[in-house]
Amino acid sequence: MKRIFVQPDLCTACKTCEMQCAIEHSQAKNIFASPSEKPHPMNRVYVEAADGRKIPIFCRHCDDAPCVAACISGAMFRDPITDAVMCDSSRCIGCWTCVMVCPYGVIGRQLELGKAVKCDLCPERESPACVDSCPTKALVFEDVEKFSKEKRASFAAAIAGG
């Protein structure tokens, strides 16, 4: 079971992760064509700032994910293989209950489709686009069990489920 780990002090807020995330979740999957697509490709990872610090904010794929529990249409579910929390677009009715309950604020609204969008750990890739593109290696994609305790201690936002 692999998860994205974040080392915030390596983050430069270049937002490459945001951009590559949007591209990965587009049809064309390339920087030149994707931006003009409709519906607009959306990123599902976020880099914010507070108090002068740069803060990458990623979905934790929580153990007791509030979005899964709260979903009134059965769109949010846990993938049996990757254990990632996923949103089944075909089921989503855009009621935004997940947006209301996500304590990290990482569920976005695709307004043109009226659907919730969230991190899916890039199921078509070996490792997520954000991790692959991070120029400072502030993001890593690691097996929760294999990820040594010491190493994990130096990484923030240790993902629940480990």
Partner: peptide, 22 residues
Amino acid sequence: RFHYGHYLLSGPRKADQYFMAG
């Protein structure tokens, strides 16, 4: 633009956990 980072830094414990590397 209220976001998780603000929430995080509002509690020293939460922030320490998040910024353990620093």
